[in-house]
Amino acid sequence: MREPMLVMSYFTESDEALHLALSHDGGHRFEPVDAGRPVLRGSVGTGALRDPFLGVGPDGLIHLLATDGWSSPSIVHAVSADLRSWSPQRLLPVMASVPGAHNAWAPEFFHDHTTGRYHLIWSSVVDAATPAESRDWQNIGQDHRIWSCATEDFSTFSAPEVFFDPGHPVIDATVVHDGERFLMAYKDERGINDPATSHKHILVTSFERPGGPYAPPRGPVGPSATEGPSLFRRDDGWIMLFDQYLEGRYGAARSTDGSRWEPAKVELPAGMRHASVFTMPG
Rank of each mutant, 00 (worst) to 15 (best):
Ala270Gln: 15
Pro220Tyr: 12
Met5Ser: 11
Leu64Ser: 02
Arg190Tyr: 10
Asp34Met: 14
Ala215Pro: 00
Leu64Tyr: 02
Asp25Val: 05
Thr130Asn: 09
Leu91Lys: 08
Leu92Arg: 01
Glu262Tyr: 06
Ala225Trp: 03
Ala252Met: 06
Phe164Ile: 03
Asn193Glu: 11
Phe11Thr: 00
Gly27Met: 04
Val7His: 11
Met8Arg: 09
Ser43Cys: 07
Asp194Lys: 06
Tyr186Phe: 15
Leu49Pro: 04
Ala128Trp: 10
Gly60Glu: 07
Gly251Gln: 10
Ser276Thr: 12
Phe207Pro: 03
Gly45Gln: 07
Trp137Gln: 06
Phe163Gly: 01
Glu161Phe: 08
Ala104Arg: 07
Ala253Ile: 06
Tyr245Cys: 15
Thr256Pro: 03
Thr114Pro: 00
Asn139Glu: 13
Asp236Arg: 11
Asp25Ala: 10
Leu64Arg: 03
Asp136Asn: 04
Tyr186Glu: 00
Gly211Leu: 12
Ser97His: 04
Ala78His: 10
Leu6Cys: 03
Thr12Gly: 03
Ala253Met: 09
Pro166Lys: 05
Val175Gln: 04
Ala21Thr: 04
Ser14Asn: 13
Met280Pro: 01
Ser155Phe: 05
His119Ile: 03
Val56Tyr: 04
Glu31Leu: 05
Asn103His: 03
Gly258Pro: 08
Ala128Ser: 14
Phe110Asn: 08
Arg2Glu: 15
Arg29Asp: 09
Ser155Cys: 05
Phe53Val: 04
Pro93Lys: 03
Phe109Arg: 01
Ser198Glu: 15
Leu40Val: 09
Val33Lys: 02
Asp143Met: 00
